[in-house]
């Protein structure tokens, strides 16, 4: 729900007041594999920030850090019944992409109303995505291959004016 603007708030252009402590202490680190937030060698650390009220769907937290496997089994290796042709063994794993990140987010940190965030493999029309401050439409959208410490911002434009 709504937050009040604390005196220590700063502008972030994201439609919520970022109180100072959020940046330092309230960063939600998703615990992966019982390693209490630690990142394994084969994992990517991705920082996520929500704007335009989207944080309401993610435990009310505007900032999250998630750890994602560097490689994800391709659909062929999973239960997908209509796999792409996978000739070589290398195709069994692919480097983690935005598609994998969004799937991971839905599974781990999305706390409510999935239909307000996701649609199909991607995000709902009207949600802007920036990867390291660039419009994801310039970065290949769902096909973008994530790098360690990438920063991804999701901003909803769906209400308020």
């Amino acid at each position: 729900m709504a937050q009040s603007i604390a005196s220590g708030s700063s502008s972030n252009g994201l439609g919520y007041s970022s109180k100072r402590e959020i940046a330092t202490e309230e960063l939600v680190v998703e615990k992966s594999g019982g390693k209490a937030g630690g990142k394994g060698e084969d994992e990517l650390e991705i920082r996520i920030e929500f704007g335009g009220g989207l944080h309401l769907l993610f435990s009310q937290q505007p900032r999250h850090t998630v750890h994602l496997p560097r490689h994800t089994p391709s659909p062929a290796a999973s239960s997908d019944p209509s796999p792409e042709p996978t000739a070589s063994e290398a195709a069994d794993n692919h480097p983690a992409t935005m598609r994998d990140l969004i799937r991971h987010m839905k599974r781990t940190i999305l706390s409510e109303r999935e239909e307000m965030f996701g649609e199909g493999d991607g995000v709902r029309p009207g949600i802007l995505v920036l990867i390291n401050d660039a419009d994801w439409e310039l970065e290949g959208e769902l096909e973008y291959e994530l790098k360690d410490r990438d920063e991804v911002v999701f901003i909803s434009t769906l209400h308020g004016g």
């Binding site: 729900m1 709504a2 603007i5 502008s11 972030n12 252009g13 994201l14 439609g15 919520y16 007041s17 704007g51 335009g52 009220g53 309401l56 920036l130 401050d133 911002v153 901003i155 909803s156 209400h159 308020g160």
Partner: peptide, 13 residues
Amino acid sequence: AYFKKLTYFSTEC
């Protein structure tokens, strides 16, 4: 608003 870091408020009615 994002690139200029403008202070705005965003909640659903």
